Amino acid sequence: MGHDIYGVNKAGKEIAYARFSMGNYNATILYSLLEAHKYYAGVSGSGNWNTYSIPQIEKALNKYKQLYKNGDSQNWDLKQILEFIQNCLETAKKEESVRVYFG
């Protein structure tokens, strides 16, 4: 069990990925930044999708920057969260939205 969170483009291609073990509390950081609490199922994600607009992903990135000042490069989880959000934002800017799977 664990949290496997994927960002995909409109063609269904994976553009972002974040993995957290079931006991890793850092998973809740990403759920919180994406305002995706309803997709958090404890030891894993709920298995559902959500579509995010550019402003929603920008909001998540801005919250991340406020809280973590672009992250601690030594903290692997913060780094993967930042990369996940940045990759989702890049795709959303190209395609007007991005889909995220919470598994």
Rank of each mutant, 00 (worst) to 15 (best):
Q56F: 04
W49N: 04
A18H: 01
S21R: 12
S46T: 13
A11K: 15
G23Q: 11
N9E: 10
Y39P: 03
H3N: 09
G2S: 10
N26P: 00
T51K: 14
N9R: 09
Q56W: 04
S32L: 05
A16K: 06
Q66H: 06
K59H: 13
G103F: 04
R99A: 14
Y52K: 02
G12W: 10
S21D: 13
L89T: 03
S53E: 10
A27M: 05
N48V: 04
E14K: 15
S73A: 11
F20I: 07
A36E: 07
K69L: 12
S32N: 10
L61T: 02
G42T: 15
Y6T: 02
Y40I: 05
M1T: 13
A92F: 02
N24K: 14
K93T: 08
R19K: 13
N48T: 05
K10Q: 11
Y64C: 02
C88I: 06
A60W: 03
S97D: 10
S32G: 11
G23Y: 12
N9T: 06
I81K: 01
W49T: 08
G23P: 01
E83G: 00
C88H: 07
G42I: 13
T51M: 09
Q86I: 09
A27Y: 02
M1L: 12
Q56P: 03
G23A: 08
H3D: 04
V43M: 11
A18K: 02
I54A: 12
N48D: 14
A41N: 15
V8E: 13
V98C: 14
L34V: 08
N50H: 08
G23K: 11
Y52I: 06
Y52F: 15
I5H: 01
Q74H: 15
L34T: 08
V43S: 13
R19V: 07
H37V: 01
Y40M: 09
K13D: 15
N62V: 05
N48G: 14
H37E: 14
L89C: 03
G103T: 08
W49P: 00
V98A: 09
T28F: 07
K94L: 14
Q80K: 15
G47A: 08
N70L: 12
E96L: 08
M1W: 09
R19G: 04
I81C: 04
A92G: 07
K94Q: 15
L67I: 02
Q86W: 03
Y40E: 06
F102P: 05
G45D: 07
Q56E: 15
V8P: 00
Y101V: 00
I29Q: 01
M22K: 13
S44P: 00
E35D: 12
Y101G: 03
D4S: 03
S46W: 02
P55E: 11
A92H: 04
Y25K: 11
N75T: 06
E96A: 09
M1C: 10
Q74E: 15
I29L: 14
L89G: 03
D4G: 01
L61D: 01
I29T: 13
S73I: 12
A36P: 02
N62A: 13
Y68M: 00
S46D: 09
W49M: 12
I15H: 00
I57A: 04
Q80I: 14
V100C: 14
K10W: 00
V98K: 01
L61N: 09
F20Y: 10
T28Q: 11
G7F: 04
